[in-house]
């Protein structure tokens, strides 16, 4: 057997090992119910519930944001994120969270906003309205 073959086998072995060990880095997309059942860290996609209050009071704590999110199954739960409120938060069309349930609230460690309107404004600006 040539040395390169041995190395190739070794690399494949390491690759399989990494694949197995990395499987714990992977999580599934879930809704609130599934997150509650699993208790693990999950990815959760949903929309901001706009008629519920968004709680961000930087005078009290600039690192505490709480809001209500409707998941893709339609369920609404309170979400807490220990970070500042992003500028275009209210305009987001979709929110992707990473975190886990803690009782009845979802504690998010990371949040990603999708605001396509920022890039594609479908309004036509009429000249007379300008200024």
């Amino acid at each position: 057997m040539k040395r390169t073959h041995i190395i190739a086998i070794a690399i494949v072995a390491v690759a399989v090992g990494i694949l197995i060990s990395a499987s714990k880095d992977v999580t599934t997309y879930a809704n609130f119910d599934q997150a509650m059942v699993s208790g693990d860290r999950v990815k959760l996609v949903g929309q901001l519930v706009k008629d519920q209050p968004v709680e961000y009071n930087p005078e009290k704590d600039p690192n505490y944001l709480a809001f209500y999110l409707r998941d893709n199954a339609g369920e609404v739960k309170r979400v807490i994120l220990r970070a500042g409120k992003p500028q275009d938060f209210e305009r987001s069309e979709q929110i992707v969270l990473t975190g886990q349930m803690n009782g009845e609230t979802f504690e998010a460690a990371d949040m990603l906003l999708k605001c396509p309107s920022k890039y594609k404004d479908q309004e036509i600006y009429v000249r007379s309205e300008k200024g």
């Binding site: 990494i18 990395a22 880095d25 992977v26 999580t27 599934t28 997309y29 879930a30 990473t98 460690a109």
Partner: peptide, 16 residues
């Protein structure tokens, strides 16, 4: 199928 995603991409990539 609901789909899979990395829990923490930064930590994952850095480790390997």
């Amino acid at each position: 199928y609901v789909g899979a995603a990395l829990k923490d991409p930064v930590e994952h990539h850095n480790r390997y």
